[in-house]
Design a protein around this nucleic acid. Structure first.
Lengths: 154, 154
DNA sequence: TATCATGTAACGTCATATGTTGCATGATTG
DNA sequence: CAATCATGCAACATATGACGTTACATGATA
């Protein structure tokens, strides 16, 4: 099964945009996201339509966040991507006439729906700001580690 | 995203096998599962390796359940299919060096794992027997409905 | 021995995420 | 105004994996 990495990818890009202070070009984002500028525009286009990011053409143009990071949840970003499939399994057919089909669909369908609901709830509970803070913590810890190693090296 | 319907499909086939009393051929299963005999063999092969079903060649051959239906969970069947992807999303790369990547992977990865654990727990709580009973209930209710309609028609 | 059924390889088909090229459009700079 | 930079977008290529199909081998039964 091919896994959709757009959500992971776009979050990576957005984190790079936070704190940049100036518009980030698709070219720069492409490097950070290890992909192609056109792919970046394609993915970001969805976020722009939802008012999550803005794009500017010409000199000094590029992508900027349109709102405060604390108001942007991962769920909203996920939906802006077109709400791709979460559960990679489904039914062969929607044949309500077959009782066997009904029994199977009920057993699996309930589970699929529950899992998707939990997923969305989790995404809705995390904002871009949360992610950014987490990143800063890691950065600080990383720097501390480097410093410690430097002291040891002395 | 292409949804994997093997689990749904194979459950459909297994329900048809229950109560058949005699081996069911791939040909017959293919009709019930709305697919091809070769596909049936391909999918059932995994279940056979796990000792869930048996296959017999020649006249009067076909597929039979190898164990009591109350000992077969949907989780086991799922694993016998090769444990296909549950969550249709993933990370672009596993680059532990990038701190941004780490922050994103942690936020999404935890959710992915939690969702998959819930999914497996749910599948583990349902046996083939449970499904079969559910089907019989539906069948009885269906017959009752038909009978009621017949009385009304009188 | 003929027939029936599975076992399996080797294809083809289709959907979708992703990669790539090319060109149009609009904004900025000189 | 012209050159440059950046996005916007169509069009096509590529890769992957589920699913479909054909062909032939193997083994069991009548």
């Amino acid at each position: 099964m091919i896994r959709d990495s757009r959500l992971s990818s776009v979050l990576h890009g957005l984190l790079h945009m936070i704190g940049a202070g100036e518009p980030v070009t698709s070219e720069q984002l492409a490097k950070a996201m290890a992909t192609n500028p056109v792919v970046v525009r394609r993915v970001m286009a969805g976020l722009r339509e939802q008012g999550i990011v803005r794009s500017e053409k010409g000199h000094g143009g590029g992508w900027t966040l349109a709102r405060d990071t604390s108001t942007i949840t991962l769920a909203e970003i996920y939906r802006a991507l077109g709400a791709p499939t979460i559960v990679a399994m489904g039914h062969r057919s929607e044949n309500p006439g077959c009782l066997v089909e009904q029994a199977v669909n009920d057993a699996l369908g309930d589970t699929f729906r529950e899992v998707e609901a939990i997923f969305m709830k989790r995404l809705g509970a995390v904002t871009l700001d949360t992610l950014a803070r987490d990143f800063k913590r890691r950065l600080a810890k990383h720097r501390q580690t480097i410093e410690d190693q430097t002291h040891v090296a002395k």
